[in-house]
Design a protein around this nucleic acid. Structure first.
Length: 839
RNA sequence: GCCCGGGUGGUGGAAUGGUAGACACGGAGGCCUCAAAAGCCUCUGCCCCUCGGGGCGUGCGGGUUCGACUCCCGCCCCGGGCACCA
């Protein structure tokens, strides 16, 4: 084949990613692309990426997240949906407060500058959003609706104030988040030993929805591991609660919770949490020093220390001097105090059955307490506590039963006598939302000595934190020492009162932003329930696995609470229909993060290869759920994506001629207009197979294989171009390639489509594969002998079993191997394989 | 300790019980060029070979199957989550 020179003006110009991307980003901004209304007649589809915390320009994790989201938005739009694609900023939070302190700026100014940076990066990535809908959690309107919801929850009993143990740093005179307490139990800032202290705090009653939050998981199209994490977090356990009578004090009862009421005959002692209210009453004078020492030691221990299994159990428990009665045997058993029993779970007291609980076994050993087995361990059992199945023994009227039957019988027995009842317990605790911080949404209540807790009247909302505060590293929240903010008169009685100075956990802000996106313009309520009804639930939610528990659980709770308080439609229970959790970007074995300082900024690539190439890299590098290691090879891989785009550009502008001056040697043959040949028909068929493959890959979130299919197709089109292509066939094939590539590389495809067709590629319908054309003309029949591949034959894809067998037996290779012997069995799976089995 | 993931060439990965290694990066050779860059073409799992081909090969050991990266059982290693929850 002789290369032909293609005359000017087909001389190629090199692809200019900078200019092209800038042009289209400007146009999308000017046109308000991807703005959508509820009135849109197309079917509604809601795509949402977890709104970012604005910490500065986008990092690679953002790029990955928003590339996945943008692909979904553009793909769904081409599929014919009216796609809601909003963006916002999780703009309250401690990091801004700390950074503002260090920089001497106000958190608002600091945060808004970071939002501007992040916004610029998102636009530079070419991500499509309805920018009119931007929500920022520090906006006064957002604060206002947060506070309105708080008051509604308060009225509905879903918000309450209670005393709760918190991490208190005596040096800083403030409450610390768990994350701020170091592993050795000291404050990360002052180095002082952090203590547990009871303080009045605000809670949201998430436990009211424990059962529904658990049951609702079953119907969600979420990653199984995320659902498992939520199930474990909710931690439902079924069992019984029963009252233990104190020996010699028939007026006192110690309620205990157990998941194994069947083992009660084996209860040889009982244990109270050191904070248990009955400890004082039940400790005898002689035992008081030991019990007091234990309580003191527990209070000063960090959570981590206390939960460690290190350290001798003798020193972690003490006898109270009192005895309680085992209700099943009627016999007295000693009552202990131990730090491994937590006041916050169950009743803060347990019955101990060392034979069927390893922790009780260990404690019993350390304190020389008896062990009575109530389940017969299997033959040859050499372990200690036995928690498995078996027949009941040493259990009087339960003897011989299996564990499940005995459980039910034991509970019935307790209920008949009125000393116990069936009980379900949850590990889930109510959500402590109070933060002694400045940069957050103020909790809108006033404390009046006469009236108690009085909500700020709705028409006075929002309560906004004053700007004239001094943010210092030490001491209380600046709000608590700001008299202008704190001192108010009671809205009810008018007497001097104090304003609440705690702010809300920022997870409150992120628990309903997706609802506000449906109607960000509402001024008389947080959102119009009809608009929420139209768009919700989110059809596809995309974000990091780091939010698998807290954010997703809180948002699920909030959605239900808002439905039940009349803000949103009553049947809207689940906010996120489908969830995708993307993998992390790692550098040097660690998650890339600004705080660690191991980031490779996207801006470098925006300025060189462009956003399309970087987006393609993130899609092609591997399954989107997997982590990505950023290595010394990564830049070369990204350049490979830019090379791919340059080839697309050349194919789309000059039928594949290389860039350069007129007169350069061409590698392509000039297209023909004559009737299509078989080779042309093959290209048409390949295009339809490509459509089917890419569509299927995208639907399965297998973007890396979708990109691979496009690579493969482009390579084959280059071979086709050199062999002398057919004008119309080539143009159609290139158009198909551009359509399929458009959601992944939106700029270059928009530019090429405009030049070739004069219209907007993103407004085109997603191509459909013609099943007849997508079917291959021939397929490779593999001939195996005893499972080993010995020959390959090109066959019609529709051949039957008999024909497949005939072709296999006709193979010269098979004759060579088998000689005259006949196979004892032939397994034919036309058109893919025939396996000849010899004895 | 418990619960999830995962282990495939030099590298990232592909293969929904049916040709293991698609595609890409890297590497080798060639074309073009005064030269280079760019571009284009060919090869690239390991071992053996008479260059026809043959053997081995998806962490390890078993099993099911005509056939296993894929399913089952038991281990090893790596990553993550939870961790005294009664």
């Amino acid at each position: 084949m002789a290369w032909r020179r293609i005359p000017s003006p087909a001389v190629a110009e090199a692809y200019d990613a900078q200019a092209t991307e800038k042009k289209w980003q400007q146009r999308w901004a000017d046109e308000g692309a991807y703005q959508v209304e509820a009135e849109d007649l197309r079917s509604a589809y809601y795509v949402l990426c977890m709104y970012p915390y604005p910490s500065g320009p986008a990092h690679q994790g953002h790029v990955r997240n928003y590339t996945l989201g943008d692909l979904t938005v553009r793909y769904r739009t081409m599929q014919g949906n009216a796609v809601l694609s909003p963006i916002g900023f999780d703009s309250f939070g401690l990091p801004a407060e700390n950074a503002a302190m260090a920089a001497g700026a106000h958190p608002r100014a600091f945060t808004e500058a970071r939002i501007a940076e992040l916004t610029a990066s998102l636009r530079r990535l070419g991500a499509a959003y309805d920018w009119r809908r931007v929500v920022r959690s520090h906006d006064p309107e957002y604060v206002r609706w947060n506070q309105v919801m708080f008051e509604a929850f308060l009225a509905a009993g879903l918000a309450y104030r209670a005393s709760a143990p918190v991490n208190w740093c005596p040096g800083c005179q403030t409450v610390l988040a768990n994350e701020q307490v170091l592993a050795d139990g000291t404050c990360e800032r002052s180095g002082d030993l952090v203590v547990k202290k009871d303080l009045e705090q605000w809670f949201y009653r998430i436990t009211a929805y424990a059962e529904e939050l658990l049951a609702g998981l079953n119907d969600l199209d979420w990653p199984e591991r995320v659902k498992t994490m939520q199930r474990n977090w909710i931690g439902r356990s079924e069992g019984a609660e029963m009252d233990l009578v104190v020996e010699g004090r028939p007026d006192l009862r110690v309620p205990v919770f157990t998941t194994r009421p069947d083992t009660t005959f084996g209860m040889t002692y009982a244990v109270l949490a050191p904070e248990h209210p009955l400890v004082g009453v039940l400790t005898t004078p002689r035992q008081r020093p030991a019990v007091a020492a234990l309580a003191e030691q527990t209070a000063h221990r960090s959570e981590i220390e206390r939960q460690s299994t290190e350290g001798s159990l003798e020193k972690r428990g003490a006898f109270t001097g009192s005895l309680v009665v085992n209700p099943f045997t009627g016999g007295p058993v000693p009552l202990y105090v131990a730090d491994y029993v937590l006041m916050s779970y169950g009743t803060g007291a347990v019955m101990a059955v060392p034979a069927e609980d390893q922790r009780d076994w260990d404690f019993a050993g350390a304190h020389h307490l008896p062990v009575v087995r109530t389940v017969q361990p299997p033959e040859g059992w050499e372990g200690e506590a036995y928690t498995g199945e078996g027949r009941k023994v040493n259990s009087d009227w339960l003897n011989g039963l299996d564990v499940a039957t005995a459980k039910a019988a034991a509970i019935d027995w307790l209920e008949e006598r009125g000393i116990g009842r069936r009980q379900v317990n949850y590990r889930l605790r109510d959500w402590l939302i109070s933060r002694q911080r400045y940069w957050g949404c103020p909790i809108p209540v006033i404390h009046c000595s006469g009236c108690g807790i009085v909500p700020v009247p709705i028409d006075e909302l929002p309560v906004l934190a004053p700007d004239d505060v001094e943010l210092t590293a030490r001491g209380q929240s600046p709000l608590a020492v700001h008299d202008g903010f704190r001192r108010v008169s009671c809205p009810r009685c008018g007497s001097p009162a104090e304003r609440e100075t705690d702010t809300m956990d920022t997870f409150v802000d992120s628990s309903w932003y997706f609802l506000r996106f449906c109607d960000p313009w509402a001024t008389d309520r947080p959102f119009d329930p009809r608009l929420v009804e139209h768009w919700m639930p989110v059809d596809q939610y995309i974000g990091g696995i780091t939010h698998a528990i807290l954010h997703l659980l809180y948002a699920r709770f909030f959605t239900r609470a808002l439905a039940d308080t009349g803000f949103s439609p009553p049947d809207l229970r689940e906010p996120f229909e489908r969830l995708f959790t993307q993998g992390m970007i790692r550098l040097g074995g660690q998650a890339m993060s600004k705080s660690r300082g191991n980031v490779v900024a996207p801006s470098v690539y925006f300025e060189t290869v462009g956003a399309d190439a970087l987006r393609l890299f993130h899609l092609a590098v591997g399954p989107p759920a997997d982590d990505v290691d950023w290595t010394s090879q990564t830049d070369e891989v990204i350049e490979g994506r830019a090379r791919f785009l340059a080839r697309v550009w050349r194919l789309g502008t000059t039928d594949g001629c290389p860039p350069g001056e007129a007169g350069d040697p061409m590698t392509a043959s000039a297209p023909r207009d004559a009737d299509p040949t078989d080779a042309d028909q093959a290209v048409l068929r390949a295009s339809h197979r490509l459509i089917a493959k890419v569509t299927d890959s995208i639907d399965r979130w297998s973007f890396n294989t979708a990109v691979a299919a496009l690579d493969e197709h482009l390579n084959s089109l280059y071979r086709y171009v050199q062999a002398g292509p057919h004008r119309r066939t080539l143009d159609d094939a290139v158009d198909t390639l551009l359509l399929l590539l458009a959601p992944m590389a939106p700029h270059i495809t928009a530019e090429l489509w405009e030049r070739r067709r004069g219209s907007d590629v993103h407004a085109q319908a997603w191509p459909k594969a013609d099943p007849d054309l997508a079917r291959a003309l021939t397929t490779t029949l593999v001939v195996q002998v005893n499972g080993k591949v010995r020959d390959r034959v090109e066959v019609d894809p529709d051949i039957d079993v008999a024909e497949a067998e005939r072709l296999a037996l006709a193979s010269a290779k098979v004759h060579e191997l088998l000689g005259d012997a006949l196979p004892s069995r032939i397994v034919a799976r036309p058109p893919r394989l025939v396996n000849l089995v010899t004895p």
